[in-house]
Simulated scan of single mutants.
Amino acid sequence: MKLLGISGTIIGAKTSIVVQNVLEEVKKHHPNVEVELLDLRDYDVQFCDGRNPSNYTGDTKKVLDIVKAADFYIIGTPIFQGSLSGPLKNLFDLINPKDIRNKVIGFVATGGTYQHYLVIENQLKPIAGFFRSFVAPGYVYVNNDHFNEENEIIDSEVLTRITALAKEVVFMQEALKSSEEKFVTVNG
């Protein structure tokens, strides 16, 4: 099983740090799960212009191929102006819905106010619904106050939620994989 963590921003480090923390927790508790971090800061992704996703080239094609190859996801975004980041929205616009249909997604977000966690409920979960993905019921929201000066997460409750989300997405993915295997065996 391959878990892809997506840091959906091209500036700052906090979102990537939180996504990486979840991936590390998965690796610690489930060493058999392959994890990879896709940090949008490392790619020059083109703006979605309405063409078929298979017609993109360069970094855009590479990113779309990485997304397609994963079995499940941890997707993170900073919250800007009460919404998800533009680069993550652009990535969602580029993804062929078939590529993440029926796959598990866990969400993390970072922001400057304590109320911005609502973006996960009001914007990210409905986007996952459009893709017909399975959304982990838990999520992690990290406020700027939860980091120290070295951008390390210092809040014990946040660290507990990170561990819980890591366990939750693996549990959901294993259950989904098991049910798919039973379906194939029964229906041949």
Rank of each mutant, 00 (worst) to 15 (best):
K2D: 00
K2W: 08
L4S: 01
T9D: 02
A13V: 08
S16V: 09
N21W: 00
N21L: 11
E25C: 11
E25T: 05
E25S: 13
E25P: 04
K27P: 07
H30A: 12
N32V: 15
N32I: 15
V33D: 07
E34W: 09
V35I: 15
L37H: 08
L38A: 07
D39E: 11
L40W: 11
R41N: 04
Y43K: 04
Y43W: 15
D44M: 10
D44A: 12
Q46I: 00
D49W: 08
S54L: 09
N55C: 01
N55R: 01
T60W: 08
V63S: 07
V63Y: 00
D65Q: 13
D65Y: 07
D71Y: 14
I74Q: 13
I75N: 06
G76S: 09
G76E: 07
T77W: 10
G82P: 03
G82I: 06
P87W: 10
K89G: 03
K89S: 07
N90V: 07
D93A: 02
D93Q: 01
I100K: 00
R101W: 00
N102R: 08
K103E: 00
V104A: 05
V104C: 07
G106D: 03
G106H: 05
A109F: 07
T113S: 15
V119Y: 03
V119G: 08
E121Q: 13
Q123A: 08
L124Q: 01
I127Q: 02
F131S: 02
F131P: 00
S133Q: 05
A136W: 04
P137V: 09
G138W: 01
G138C: 04
N143Q: 13
N143G: 07
H146D: 15
H146G: 14
E150A: 08
E152G: 00
E152R: 04
E152S: 13
I153K: 02
I154N: 03
I154T: 12
D155K: 08
E157D: 13
E157V: 10
L159H: 01
R161I: 01
A164F: 03
L165M: 09
L165N: 09
V170Y: 03
V170D: 02
M172E: 00
M172I: 15
Q173K: 05
Q173N: 10
K177W: 02
K177V: 11
S178Q: 15
S179A: 13
S179I: 12
E181D: 10
